[in-house]
Nucleic acid binder design. Structure first.
Lengths: 313, 313
DNA sequence: CTCAAACGATACCTTTAAGGTATGATAAGG
DNA sequence: CCTTATCATACCTTAAAGGTATCGTTTGAG
């Protein structure tokens, strides 16, 4: 499959006539016919009904046509965006993040970065923690906000805060009958919902590891794509899940209880390359320190523990 | 530009070494070098810094790399989806759902199902709309709650409601300066964030298709995993996204504006196999009718249009 | 500081695939 | 039934992809 074939197919789908499409594409009709045939052979499905005049799309052809339009549009956009970056000499600064950090200070931090460094083109890339390390080393991102500790000597990891975890439990169940902190051992024998399902390892594995360390075995583990699904299933009484306390705002039709064990926390970690002396790394660190000094609502000191960190190394 | 060149470039970007990348691609190093040069000539920008070892990406190269990954992923997905279309018991009762239906009546419906049919083992499976049709035909699920219309004659699709779409825009931007409904044409030239990234086609494609139909071309498209990431990026002023109106509760630090065009809706559709006379299908239909008669808060009649549907066919 | 190894670029050749022409087969309308 | 339009097949030409040989540059070890 190739972009040229996509363009050829789109033309045929729009004209519903190979001869006219060939004219528009400035090629002869037989090579157009052959290229569409090659495409169908590669896919193993028929895209067009040729026995009728004008030709009609099959169901697969209709789907393929819509998708092809989008892919061709995406290619156009990436060409334009690449040229814009390359020709305008804007600096790009890439930030990797795990989704849960969007409920902490990351949105504000990015806004402050835009204010302090308007010349930067800030790219935001969702990567689970384990993906951030190679991404940093390969230069695909410049900093990363992750949730898992690592041991790579080429990447500096600084714990910004340790966020307390809470159990989201279905309304109307026994565990929902109180609001006091509960022991993680209460989760024994429960159906556990974990996320994100892939890529792994991820926060799902962090939770499974913490439960294991506390000798807690759930009755069933159900892996789902992401937190919104997990909390939705809790609302549907399909099980319980363990989430960072900042995510409690997502739904109000489930019950939340703080997990009392002090080890039941999830760190938020800033990662960057060793020896990266970019002024933007310094700027990020300074902005983070300022934000923490301001004690903003999302920091929620009742559910976060700050390690005695500073950025002086 | 061609898919082959994108694959070549991605390999070089990942290996940071032309010789190794060539080996992985099963071609010789000189043609790889030349193809990347042709690509750079066509774009008119440099993608790689070759004077350093290992080679590094330029800023334009980094953006191009991320975009190329997305495009290649899309091509893979469209191939798979096209092939899938072209080419479907205590009693377990499986319900497929798209994540956004968890913010509607699905959790309540499942609770009612559990009450009315306690003998059922209700399995909940997150599947995007297009995955639900083969899943129904193959018997992997018994009903599905999806967002995309289909034309498969073997599956009955009933539109339960048409949910109005809203634009989530960053605080402090021009579009956030009003609360009145806005025209979809206002999204021209904006950076658009779409979700879910995979599998495809999905709600992301529904939005892209709707924009295309209204002749709206965004400046850039950024695909992310799911709505929480999309809204978080909006909060970080990384672009705008189009969401179902029920999802507005997820974040309060972005601005929402109803999109005024009447066609800018996303249907919620109940799908089941033709001729499926299961008492549970009848039960689900009855429960849905009861729930809609109760006019619950999530139904939000201001942002939903009910088609004159009944389940009598 | 020197040298050898690694690695990307250039030149030129071979092979492969895209496209063109001629023509056959089939659908559809008069 | 016949003619025209349209897609498929066969075969040839042309253009581009890929291979080999080799040059120039970077980097790290001694």
């Amino acid at each position: 499959m190739d972009l040229r074939q996509l363009r050829y197919f789109v033309a045929v789908a729009q004209e519903r006539n190979f001869t006219r499409a060939a004219e528009l594409l400035h090629i002869a009709q037989p090579p157009l016919s052959r290229q569409i045939q090659l495409l169908e052979e590669e896919l193993g499905v028929s895209l067009l009904i040729r026995k009728s005049r004008p030709v009609r799309l099959t169901d697969a052809g209709r789907l393929f046509y819509e998708q092809a339009l989008q892919v061709l549009g995406r290619v156009e956009q990436m060409r334009d965006a690449t040229r814009r970056i390359g020709l305008n000499q804007n600096s790009v600064f890439s930030i990797g993040f795990v989704a849960s950090t969007l409920y902490g200070g990351l949105p504000s931090l990015v806004r402050k970065m835009r204010q302090h460094a308007p010349e930067l083109d800030i790219q935001l890339l969702e990567l689970v923690s384990v993906q951030q390390i190679p991404a940093l080393k390969e230069g695909r991102i410049d900093v990363g906000f992750g949730r898992l500790r690592h041991s790579d000597p080429n990447v500096v990891g600084t714990v910004l805060r340790e966020e307390r975890l809470v159990a989201a439990v279905p309304m109307g169940t026994a565990l929902a009958g109180a609001s006091t902190p509960l022991s993680v051992k209460s989760l024994r024998g429960q159906k556990l919902i974990v996320y994100p399902k892939e890529p792994r390892p991820s926060y799902a594995d962090q939770v499974l590891g913490l439960l294991q360390r506390h000798d807690v075995r759930p009755a069933e583990v159900h892996e789902v794509r992401e937190i919104q699904t997990a909390l939705g299933l809790v609302a549907a009484d399909a099980g319980v899940c363990v989430i960072p306390s900042s995510a409690r705002q997502m739904r109000s039709d489930v019950h939340y209880r703080l997990i009392e064990e002090e080890a039941m926390t999830s760190p938020v970690i800033l990662n960057h390359r060793v020896g990266d002396n970019s002024v933007y790394i310094d700027l990020i660190k300074r902005l983070i320190e300022e934000m923490y000094r301001e004690n903003p609502p999302w920091l929620d000191m009742e559910h976060n523990v700050l390690p005695g960190h500073s950025f002086d190394s």
